[in-house]
Amino acid sequence: MAILSTKDLKKVYGSGENEVHALAGVNFQVEKGEFVAIVGTSGSGKSTLLHMLGGLDRPTSGGVTVDGKEIFTLKDEALTIFRRRKIGFVFQNYNLVPVLNVYENILLPVQLDGGSPDQTYIKDIINTLGLSSKLGNLPNNLSGGQQQRVAIARALASKPAIILADEPTGNLDSKTSQDVLSLLKVTGQKFSQTIVMITHNEAIAQMADRVIRIEDGKITG
């Protein structure tokens, strides 16, 4: 059963002669537990697609279904709440909250939702990602790779339906990239997560179970 599917997803920026079709009707599905990479060049529309999948931005037309829910039928507040429960994000620039320490950053989505964290599960994630000695640190004191591992831990913490990763290794050197990616894949399997990763790097994309290519706002293969 598909955990994520899009239906004729379109996004148009501007109007008239300035009209840009960032997404020109995108249809695809991701099965539960899959690790999918979406590959495209700069300007291909892959970031826009990721924003749509994550409910960060609304499409001009078409829809996205996550875990059986047509997400754009939700109002802003409800969508935010749906997002923090069902979708975990990993960004290129980590986007950790600078004023919270590592542990607090990881727990943030769960606590924002008012839930009490599943301590054994969280501990498991922390150990798997090798963060146990860094829990009290502030993000600024960590290396890029460490920050990205915190971001992955945060994404996993709320046991989301899918994890969306946007160029997760874009700011990292190749050695660290490999490490982070392996960790992402391993944890994904271990905690049976569905992962959708966006990248422009073919080599990195090859680590995924399936590669979807996008160009000029359309799926090409």
Binding site: G54, L56, D76, E77, T80, I81, R83, R84, R85, F89, F91, N95, V97, P98, L108, P109, L112, D113, R154, S158
Partner: peptide, 15 residues
């Protein structure tokens, strides 16, 4: 950026 980030993670407007 800070508030946008909080939003991305799932902080609601009311929060």
């Amino acid at each position: 950026r800070f508030y946008g980030l909080l939003k991305t993670i799932g902080t609601t407007g009311r929060q």
